[in-house]
Structures are given as structure tokens and as C-alpha cells.
Amino acid sequence: MLKPIIVSLITDISNTTKSSIPIASRLPFNVEYGEKFNQYIYPIAMHNYMAVFTRSFATIAVDNLYYVLIQHACGMFSIIGNVLENIGKNNANDFNAKSDKIKDNNYNKTLHCLRRHLDVIEFAENIEELFTKIFLINLNLNMICGSLAGVQVLMNLEKNASDISVPIIIYTAQFIHLFLHFWNAQFLLDYSVLPYKSICKIHLQYKLITSERCKKLLLLIMSRTISPCRITAGKVATLSIERFGVENITLLFDSFSSFFASLVLIYK
């Protein structure tokens, strides 16, 4: 949808008038309407933009669902960590460690956090199960489309700037789209260990004055939190900012190196 704007800007910079820009190049993609094309240019343009929007609406809907589910899981981990951080905080030094289970408020809070923690872990595993195959396909398609965009740029180096701008815009959009997937997966990695950090914090700062049964529940939560929840691509690669930097930044530098090497060979 940005193609007509970019083409118009590039053509204006080239010291030409807007009237010299072909009408067909102002549309998102090429269409054939015969001799009446110029007569019905505005309805055709509206149809073009609606087609682009409806084609991308499914991707937008799935991505927004993924972002919302991840943020909900992170919020639940944050709530559990906040509750755990306040357990045993206000207990006195003469606290009875062998009090009745019904009257032990810290035990009841910890038991509730344990149950909610298991529910959130199951929820995160369901998210991973739902999107793991999609991300595997998405990663492979991004690599293929990125390579095709680079080949298209190299083939159109000696032509108009508009022929180069379109594949560069497409590659940039794919790069940002992939980054958002890795970025949200990193949120889940970080927030899923919050309960562990909260328990360690109350143990160090407040010496964890609670009953023995409460401490056993806290150990169960800690043992499960050691392995953080993660989003994977086909159960093969874990999505994280570190993984994104290692793979995609390297691929980007390789693409730029090949691009400049091709420029040198062409001008030689």
C-alpha cells in the first residue's frame, strides 16, 4: 500500500512532474481493465486497496491474537510474582511455624498461587502448541522471500529507483514483522521466571518467616519455574531477542555484503 507513495516521492525527486508518473504505477499492484482503465481509475484504486487490506486482515488478526495471549500470560505471571513477594513480609519474629492449616494465611495464599501458576503454565504451553507450526512456516517463508527480494534488487539495479524500492520495502516489512514475533516471545521468557525471582527476593530480604508447609509449596513453585515458558518454531528454535539478533542480523549483514559486492562487480 506504500508503493504508490514511494514511487511518487522518488519520481518527484528525479526532477519530473507528477503527470509523468504512469497511472498504473500509482496502484498497489498491476491490473488489466482494458481501454476504460483511465476512466474508472478511482473505483479501481479503491478496489485495489480493499483487496490488499482483506488479504492482510487474516495475518493482522492472527498476530493480534498472539500478542494479546502473550501479554495476558505475562500479566498472570506478574500477578503471581507480586502475591508471592508479599508472603511472610509482615510476620513477627514470634510467628508460630506449626499453626493450624486453616488459620495459616500464608499457606492459603501460596497454595492459591501454586494452582494459578500451574494454570498459567498450561496456558503458555497451549499458546506454544497453537503457534509453533505457524512460526516454523513463517521463518522459512521470510528467509525465502528475503532472498527473492535481494535477487530482485540486484536484477533492477540499472533500472528505475521505483523497481528497487518495492522489494526493499517488502523486505523491511518482513523484518519488522519477524521482530515483533521474537520480541513478544521474549516477554514470555522474562515474565515466566518472575515467581522464582519473587521467592528469592522475600527469602533474602525478609528471611521468609512462614510455616514449613508453606515453604514446601514455595519450593514446588521454584522447581517448576527454573524451566521458563518459551515459544518455539516447530519445537526446533526458541524465539527470543538473542536468537533474532544472532540469526537475522547476521543474515542482514550477509545480504548487505552481497549487495555491495554485486555493485562493485557491476561498476567494474
Rank of each mutant, 00 (worst) to 15 (best):
P4Y: 09
P4H: 11
P4Q: 08
V7G: 05
I13V: 05
S14Y: 09
S14A: 12
S14P: 01
T17I: 04
K18P: 00
K18A: 03
S19T: 06
I21A: 01
V31A: 15
E35C: 03
E35L: 09
N38M: 10
Q39L: 14
I41C: 12
A45P: 04
H47F: 10
H47K: 07
N48Q: 14
N48K: 13
Y49T: 01
V52E: 12
T54D: 03
R55Y: 14
A58D: 07
N64G: 02
Y66P: 00
M76G: 03
M76C: 13
I80V: 09
I80G: 06
G81N: 08
A92K: 12
N93I: 13
N96Q: 10
K98W: 05
K98G: 03
S99M: 12
D100I: 00
N108W: 01
T110I: 09
F123N: 00
A124G: 07
E125A: 05
E125D: 14
I127S: 02
I127E: 01
E128F: 04
L130G: 02
I137E: 06
I137D: 04
L139G: 12
L141G: 07
M143W: 12
I144S: 13
G146N: 14
G146M: 13
L148R: 00
G150K: 02
Q152A: 09
N156Q: 03
N156L: 00
L157M: 03
A161Y: 10
S162G: 07
V166D: 12
P167D: 08
I168H: 08
I168C: 11
Y171D: 08
I176G: 07
L178C: 14
H181C: 10
W183M: 02
Q186I: 01
F187R: 04
L189F: 01
L189I: 06
L189K: 00
Y191F: 10
Y191V: 01
P195Q: 11
Y196K: 15
S198N: 07
S198K: 10
I199N: 12
Q205E: 15
K207N: 14
I209D: 01
I209L: 08
E212C: 03
R213E: 15
K215V: 05
L220N: 13
S223R: 14
R224N: 13
T225V: 09
S227F: 12
C229G: 08
T232A: 05
G234L: 03
G234R: 01
V236L: 10
I249D: 07
T250W: 03
L251F: 10
D254E: 14
S257R: 15
S257F: 13
F259T: 06
S262E: 08
L263A: 02
V264R: 12
L265P: 00
I266Y: 04
Y267C: 02
Y267L: 04
Y267F: 09
